[in-house]
């Protein structure tokens, strides 16, 4: 799961040319990796790929700050 999300972000969404490989603990929100539309696309991707529904109230910093946070959140569902 972690690998799939990491690959999608690095290949499709990232705004910046990443110097190093994206890590699961990298902050997706604080830096320039994703913008707000990129985050929306990521959530759509996750919903389709893992067949889950992310309700609006779950779209928070706490659940989406890093890929680690995302997988923790998805595993709880």
């Amino acid at each position: 799961m972690t690998e799939i999300i990491l690959e999608y972000i690095s290949k499709i969404l990232s705004n910046e040319q990443l110097e190093d490989e994206l890590q699961a603990e990298d902050d997706l929100l604080g830096g320039g990796i994703l913008d707000s539309l990129g985050m929306m696309k990521l959530i759509l991707f996750i919903e389709e790929k893992f067949n889950v529904k992310v309700p609006p109230e779950d779209m928070t910093i706490e659940n989406f700050m890093t890929v680690d946070h995302i997988t923790t959140y998805l595993n709880k569902k």
Partner: peptide, 30 residues
């Protein structure tokens, strides 16, 4: 508003409530 909040609209809306914001100014998209 932090960069993280601008990317997570749910957290952003919560921020208006918890910070007791009196004046909001932004582009329509937010």
């Amino acid at each position: 508003v932090t960069d993280a909040h601008t990317k997570m609209p749910t957290s952003l809306a919560n921020l208006i409530a918890t910070e007791k914001i009196t004046l909001w100014y932004s582009v329509p998209l937010a």
